[in-house]
């Protein structure tokens, strides 16, 4: 027994020190008024009631929800791409590497590059649009477009991981099923919808869970891409985690920031629980 404790100690201490303790202290802070320095005072649920009446918080949740919804469109895209790459034979590795590159690139670097691409006056994106006679926009300076611009990058960034997970799922589907269906006269498209998608559904479900959680926590893109000194689009484009950062670290309101973090945690938990409930009707565990 004593030895057992010793062996699990490294993992347990890490878990407690790096996850449990910060979580508890965040939970406690969310019920306090925490000045930048000096002692905190308990204020009950004040932070939460203020939060519910704060238009900025609602707007930030709205932005995060919109962002998440668009990024989810990347999953069907990833399923189709994964199936196509699976067909590619020898070239598979090349495609996988290409799609995986954004995953191993620093988000900061990605944000910087896309900021240049989206630049309204000199950006590559508007230049490409001009070939088709489409008027360019200020994608990361106009609040009407910012969330969509982020989401496009978000899809591109998430694609690599999704392809790896889905690719592994595809390889687990027995070849015999395809052969049998081919004998019965099923074409490639029919096979995709009637064999690949249902048998891949556990992997798709897993990818969906990960995507929703990551999307609701989006921070780095907005931080890098809207960071210029007086960006007038920032006020309308904040995501919930950006708002948390701003409250806790720029405006010295740690208690309020902690309350935002707790509410986000609850939202993520509800979203995940909901998905687990819904999966019963569409995920197929052969």
């Amino acid at each position: 027994m004593g030895w057992a404790l010793l062996f699990i100690a490294p993992a347990t201490i890490g878990l407690v020190a790096l996850y449990l303790w910060p979580f508890l202290s965040t939970l406690i802070k969310s019920f306090q008024d925490v000045p930048a320095f000096g002692p905190a005072t308990f204020t009950g649920v004040d932070n939460y009631t203020e939060l519910l009446g704060d238009g900025e918080v609602w707007q930030a949740f709205g932005n995060s929800a919109l962002y998440t919804a668009i990024v989810l469109l990347g999953i069907p895209l990833a399923v189709v791409l994964a199936a196509l790459i699976e067909q590619a034979g020898r070239g598979r590795t090349v495609y996988r590497v290409l799609f995986f590159l954004p995953v191993v690139t620093l988000p900061v670097a990605i944000g910087m590059v896309w900021r240049f691409i989206y630049n309204g006056d000199f950006g590559l994106f508007n230049y490409v649009l001009s070939w088709f006679g489409i008027d360019g926009q200020y994608w990361v300076a106009d609040p009407r477009f910012t969330i969509y611009a982020f989401a496009a990058v978000g899809i591109w960034m998430g694609l690599g991981i999704n392809l790896i997970i889905l690719g592994a799922g595809l390889q687990a589907i027995p070849k015999a099923v395809y052969e049998a269906s081919a004998l019965d006269g099923a074409g490639r498209v029919r096979q995709f919808f009637h064999i690949t998608v249902p048998l891949l559904s556990p992997s798709i479900f897993f990818v969906t869970i990960l995507t929703v959680i990551a999307a609701l926590q989006m921070f780095d893109l907005i931080f890098i891409m809207l960071r210029s000194v007086n960006n007038t689009a920032l006020a309308d484009s904040k995501t919930i985690v950006y708002l948390f950062y701003e409250k806790a670290f720029v405006q010295f309101q740690q208690g309020y920031g902690a309350a935002i973090a707790i509410v986000l945690l609850i939202v993520i938990m509800i979203a995940t629980a909901l998905q687990f409930r819904l999966q019963r009707s569409w995920v197929f565990y052969g």
Binding site: N119, G120, D121, F122, Y138, A141, V229, N230, T232
Partner: peptide, 10 residues
Amino acid sequence: TLKQLSDTEA
């Protein structure tokens, strides 16, 4: 414009 100055700092 403000949008241009948001994209490219002054």
